[in-house]
C-alpha cells in the first residue's frame, strides 16, 4: 500500500525537532505540501533513513458528484435504511490523507466508538446500532438507520463531528 501512513512509518519518528518542526507528523505534512525538503531532516541527511522509499500518494478527486448517491433498504434488514452521500470535498481536500492521522491521534478521542484508519482513509463510527463510515474522498455512508429522517440526522451529526475534527 502506498499511503501517507506507510510514508510516515518510514520517517524516523524521533520527534527531535532539528528540522524546525515540532514533530515528524508535522514534518511529513509540510513535506507533502511541498513546504519542506527532506534534507532538512537530520536522519535523512546523514543517511540513517532512506528517503528514496517515500512515495507520496496523489490525492484523488471525489469519484461522484456531491449529493445523495442512494437511499436503499438495508441488505440485512429491509425495515432499516442505508444512505450514501457524496460531499463536496473529502478529508484530503486541504491537507491530504494527513488529516485522518490527526483525526485518529488528536481529535478522535472526543467521539466515542470512533475508529480511524489513516492508511486506508476510512473512519468508522457505531452509534446505537447504526454504522457510519466516512471515506477519504468525501463519501459517507450510514447503515441500519431507523428511517430516512434518522439517516440524514445521524449523517449530519457525524459530518459535523468528523469535519470539525479535521478542518
Amino acid at each position: 500500500m502506498n499511503s501517507i501512513f506507510e510514508a510516515y512509518s518510514k520517517f524516523p519518528r524521533a520527534d527531535c525537532g532539528y528540522c524546525g518542526n515540532p514533530s515528524c507528523i508535522t514534518a511529513l505534512r509540510r513535506y507533502c505540501s511541498g513546504e519542506m525538503p527532506l534534507d532538512k531532516c537530520l536522519f535523512f541527511r546523514t543517511g540513517a533513513f532512506d528517503p528514496g522509499l517515500i512515495h507520496y500518494p496523489a490525492a484523488r478527486d471525489s469519484p461522484s458528484k456531491p449529493g445523495i448517491s442512494y437511499i436503499n433498504p438495508c441488505p440485512s434488514d429491509a425495515k432499516m435504511v442505508t444512505v450514501e452521500v457524496s460531499l463536496a470535498s473529502g478529508m484530503h481536500a486541504k491537507h491530504g490523507y494527513y488529516d485522518m492521522i490527526s483525526l485518529d491521534r488528536i481529535f478522535g478521542r472526543f467521539i466515542p466508538s470512533l475508529k480511524v484508519s489513516p492508511s486506508l482513509g476510512i473512519a468508522r463510527i457505531e452509534h446505537d446500532g447504526r454504522a457510519i463510515m466516512a471515506f477519504k474522498e468525501g463519501r459517507m455512508l450510514i447503515r441500519r438507520a431507523l428511517g430516512e429522517e434518522d439517516a440524514f440526522m445521524q449523517l449530519s451529526r457525524a459530518m459535523r463531528q468528523l469535519w470539525a475534527a479535521v478542518n
Binding site: 441488505p75 486506508l120 477519504k136 463519501r139
Partner: peptide, 20 residues
C-alpha cells in the same frame, strides 16, 4: 460487521466481495 468489511475493501482498494 460483514457489510462494513465489504465497504472498507471497496473503498480502500476497489475490492468487490459479497457480505451478508
Amino acid at each position: 460487521n460483514s457489510h462494513d468489511v465489504a465497504l472498507a475493501l471497496d473503498s480502500a482498494a476497489g475490492i468487490m466481495v459479497r457480505s451478508g
